[in-house]
Simulated scan of single mutants.
Amino acid sequence: MSDCIFCQIIEKHIPASVVYEDDEMLCFKDINPAAPVHLLLIPKVHFDSLAHAQAKHEALLGRMMFKVPQIAQANGLNNGFKTQINTGKGGGQEVFHLHIHIMGRPA
């Protein structure tokens, strides 16, 4: 088993409040929310950060970005939302598995 906490969530070794899942990605509630709605969308394939994305990840990243507004709306963010991708320690990244923060206040 990987020591990556997000990989452990994907493998169901650690519980999470999942709001969306398909074959390629998983979205769950952040356990330390910075907004009333704070979700994390992660790919099921592990790579550390956006800086570590390769050409083979291009289509997956596009599908993830396309899914963000759908997930946001399904979680009450009908008047807008903020996305954030922290990359590397200097960019504020704390968990080194690519993830997209989806944050906002329900309408």
Rank of each mutant, 00 (worst) to 15 (best):
A59I: 10
E21N: 10
A35G: 06
Q84G: 13
G80M: 04
R105W: 05
L50A: 15
F6M: 01
D3S: 15
M103N: 04
E94C: 00
K29R: 14
S17V: 13
L26N: 08
L40T: 09
L41W: 04
I102P: 01
H57I: 08
I9T: 13
P43V: 09
I71L: 00
M103I: 04
M25V: 03
L98I: 03
L61Y: 11
D22N: 15
E21S: 07
V45F: 05
A74F: 09
I42E: 04
P106I: 07
K89Y: 02
H38S: 06
G62C: 04
A59G: 12
V95E: 10
F6G: 00
H38N: 10
H57M: 05
Y20N: 11
K82L: 09
I31Y: 12
E24T: 03
N78D: 15
I100L: 00
G88D: 09
I42G: 03
A55I: 11
H99M: 00
G90Q: 01
A34I: 08
V19K: 03
Q73G: 10
L50E: 10
M25P: 07
I42Q: 04
C7G: 02
N86E: 06
V45W: 02
A16H: 08
A34C: 11
D48P: 05
R63Q: 08
Q54H: 12
K12V: 12
G104E: 02
M25S: 09
F28W: 11
A51P: 12
C4A: 08
L50C: 10
L60Y: 03
L26Y: 13
Y20M: 08
N86K: 03
L50W: 07
T87E: 10
E58V: 15
N79E: 15
A59T: 14
G92V: 05
L26K: 09
Q93K: 00
A16Y: 09
H57L: 03
Q73A: 14
M64T: 09
K56F: 11
F6S: 02
K89C: 09
N78K: 14
